[in-house]
Design a protein around this nucleic acid. Structure first.
Lengths: 227, 227, 227, 227
DNA sequence: AATGAATGAGGGTTCATTCAT
DNA sequence: CATGAATGAACCCTCATTCAT
């Protein structure tokens, strides 16, 4: 048949992308069939190829776009934040809220890198590295200043990111704890794990405090909550 | 054909299991074909069915055996260790060394639960829950005693396990840092993250000390390494 | 969208035809896709249907137009040429020069008749038969007059046409031999193969001579040379 | 399902090859579908892959095996034949009888070289060149001895082979003319086309005589026919 | 005169699985 | 204990073609 009445390329493209993310998230890239995806958006499977080159590139597009979004939003969140501890807290705050909001994308970007072919995988890994570097830089800075007790910044970076990212494995928006509460708990864990004990912030109540109220930037807070 | 001279059912079964673990680890369950597996062990793909019921059950067998091994070894490692902090440290120590030694099994058990069908998945998840309970119990105990500043033991459990398990994504036996050094780093992170600051263990050197050398129990160390 | 500025139906039609000939020549009718063809002329594949009914009819149009051109030009070339030997030579001369000049069309007409559906194929075969008849008539005439030693004119016709047509499989305009030289060589082969030995024309030099100058039709000559 | 009762690999392989040759001959390589081929031999299309790697390699196998057969049989047919004219006649005789007997294989080898991918095509073309060389050598020999009036052996080779091969486009075993008669006709054409007129063999009867009945070697004839 | 969105059929190919031998 | 022949379903993908815009 010809063009379905009222069909619209941009709308279809968006629907494909969204359905693709959901299906890959739920079944895995290998296990998702293009027939499934097509029927989800009401197309014949062949018609998908108007919207991507092949299955691989659908995956890569999702991963790439996600990583670009992640990096640019992280940079925005940390922009203007000074000092190792505030920067660390800002990173933790951002990372958690982002991962709670975009479980599916995040899950895909973490789990399906393996399903990318070699060239695409290299690109994705490099983007991930750039993102991790933001945390590593904060840790190195804190270590240099003596604020952090971090002997191997790379190892700590991997450890912290693993810990934080894990939230997308079990977080549910309708769960008992709010995003703010979770952020506070994880912040305590992270900061407690790296902060030099002799240097203040020793009181538990204080530990997660700064994330609670940077009075100079209230708008940032509300943005994050919605994120 | 008759059997190859010297062929042996048990040996073949073991070869299949090992090759299966490697292939699933490298390519993923969905992406691994039974033809690949068969050729890896020098069989026709049809012959594999003497050794398992179907592809699903191969995966499940691997996951279940791994989880049973993990749990029983963890129990052995923590057997006789008293007090929240020592138990926490023992768990961290065990978990890390086990995950550094059995990357492939661990990776599969974590990533391919999604590829299990519903009944098998339920079993695997329940086993994982039992394992996680060991850590959660230590955290609850410490919280009750006031040694740990842990308001949500479940959340902290997930967070810590995610952090520790992440090591199997990048650890290489030939890397710069030894297993002991890595255990020390992660122990600092974990203990610092949960320990109540006002209560001792505040000196960094001490934090990871017990993992370094409890001189009264040197044999314990080497046991753990082998585990 | 509206039409591209300066676009022109007739010009597009010609471009499609030319690109179609080239693509069918290079890849074969079955292997050529209409997407390829469309992109070659800067259109969407659906737009091609303004210019032909379907892929079949594109092929048939090419074959039919080619055959009509071939036949009418052959008739023009032999018009006014008298006697079996001169007519035979004129045919050889014309056929070779035409086939050296229009490799692609000729190749298609010979190779892709098989790709035509039954009714179209019948038409094409009948046109080919009409063309071959011109040679067969010359052979029959020569046999009747005793100039040619041809017992089975049909067989000899097929044989000679096969031989001559074969030139389009390897001829290159930038090759070592000129069109005139090749015509001379093939003329020798054909005339030697059919001419009665006792009847003159035995000297090689003479054999191909008459093709050099039928003084009554100079314009025809120069056209051929350029062709 | 499992193995069909009474199924047999070698028999199936042969059936696939034969059906493949027929289908490619009738419809062309591109137009033949593997589903067609499979149903012709009573299989599912996927089962074909026990017998070839892919569609390309089926074609190549057919072409290669045919060319090897052609070359070895041609060498056998010309073995021990001395002198340019006898060798030329032997080649013509062999080529025609072979092409009348194996229309389908020959047709494929000539028409579907274009459907081979580049590496396979190169191999096929080289084999064809080796075969053509046998004729070219005979022509060169005759030209050197003065028996043949051949100025461009390569051109004459292409011309003669084209002429002879063309027979597979129209020959029918149940046609009016016998193989012997056709061989005689073509031999006259070829020998007349290349033989030096001043040097004997001028009498038509003689021209095709050896193909008719070399009374000293009647067995040779029948051997060739079977070849 | 041409686009852009879609179809539906079919392409080659791979897969887990079965079972007579 | 293992093979070797086969299945049937599904895979990703390409195709000629249609027609509202």
């Amino acid at each position: 048949m010809a063009r379905t009445i009222g069909s619209n390329g941009a709308r279809t493209a968006k629907a494909i992308r969204q359905a693709g993310v959901q299906l890959i998230y739920r079944h895995g890239y290998e296990a998702m069939s293009l027939r499934q995806l097509a029927s989800e958006v009401g197309l014949q499977s062949g018609s998908l190829y108007k919207y991507f080159e092949n299955k691989q590139s659908l995956l890569f597009d999702i991963v790439r776009d996600h990583m670009e979004d992640l990096i640019s939003k992280a940079e925005a969140a940390m922009d203007g934040v000074d000092g190792p501890l505030p920067r660390l807290k800002a990173f933790v705050d951002f990372h958690l809220r982002y991962h709670m909001t975009r479980k599916a994308h995040v899950f895909i970007a973490n789990m399906e890198i393996r399903s990318l072919d070699a060239p695409h995988r290299a690109v994705a890994i490099e983007m991930r590295r750039r993102y991790e570097q933001m945390l590593e830089d904060a840790l190195r800075l804190g270590a240099a200043e003596g604020a952090f007790r971090v002997s191997e910044p790379k190892v700590s970076t991997y450890a912290i990111i693993s810990m934080l990212t894990g939230i997308c494995m079990w977080y549910r928006p309708d769960g008992r704890l709010t995003q703010d509460e979770l952020v506070a708990i994880y912040t305590d864990l992270v900061v407690g794990g790296v902060a030099s004990p002799e240097r203040g912030a020793a009181k538990p109540a204080e530990l997660s405090a700064p994330a609670e109220a940077p009075p100079t930037a209230p708008s940032v807070r509300s943005r994050r909550v919605r994120a």
